[in-house]
Amino acid sequence: MELTEVGAMLADTAERLFTAHAEEIDRAAHEGVWPEAAWAAIEESGLPLALVPEAQGGFGVPPREALMLIRQSGRHALALPLAETMIGNAALAAAGLSLAKGPVGLADSANARVPWGRHAKTIVLGDDVGVQRHVGLDVSTQGTNIAGHPRDQIAAPAEQPSSAGAVPVLALGALARALQMAGALERVLEMTVEHVSSRVQFGRPLAKFQAIQQELAKLAGEVAAASAAADHAADAYASGAEDLTFAIAVARTRIGEAASKAAAIAHQLHGAIGFTREHALHRFTTALWAWRDEYGTQRHWTLIVGKRALSAGRDGYWPMVVAA
């Protein structure tokens, strides 16, 4: 994809920040603390506003390219609520509410487990009624997902702010996870290729064994499918597709399956080395296992696609697939 100047600049900035602060972010995630300096640098860079239209305080990066930043964060298994903050700000802007201060806790219902809820300065809640912007809410129950990322229950607000707009926050959160998974899967493939190329057994690199090559080819297929499915949903968002939610449902259904299959192959090919806390692979695979069921589970999104397929009927099925 050819990037605009502003898009390329943001992508460079993001890569530099994700790499420079990787250690701090990783350590903070392990110790359950907030990486103050890393987040401050990310906020300073303007990344949290990348999905906001220029007229509402963004800086004119095309939406398709802004979404690539979320994918890029997935390539680093970034343990920060950057995707949530980008989506949260976009939802606030779409609903005509003022933008968030600090990291956003993005919630698709009042009793959702909110990513990084304890660190969020603004809670953006979007449901069927509309979008609400909350500040100063307390965490009622702290928890984590299986990647060890905070997932917290938020206490009910003392008074309800008014709801605005009709923004599909659940679907947009799901889109973020789809993109993050596609990015993480790409990195998992690279790591696995690197590992089998350098690890020598029986006197030759693992990569020279046909059994290994066949498994890697399967892994590459799943990663390619996930990548295409994420692109499909991102294109639907950028083009203002009428049925954005369905495109996201398709993407999440396919990418969730790819995440399961790819993580299994990657671990098999990494052997015991990849099953340690010390090796980086688990940061990606545990995130994939968690992400495939966040902002709607695998089952939730698959059922949406299945019901649509069934209701299209025998003669309407193929036209429905083409229009999806």
Binding site: T253, T302, V305
Partner: peptide
Amino acid sequence: ELALGRLT
């Protein structure tokens, strides 16, 4: 529905 969703 789940099977059709996956296939689709």
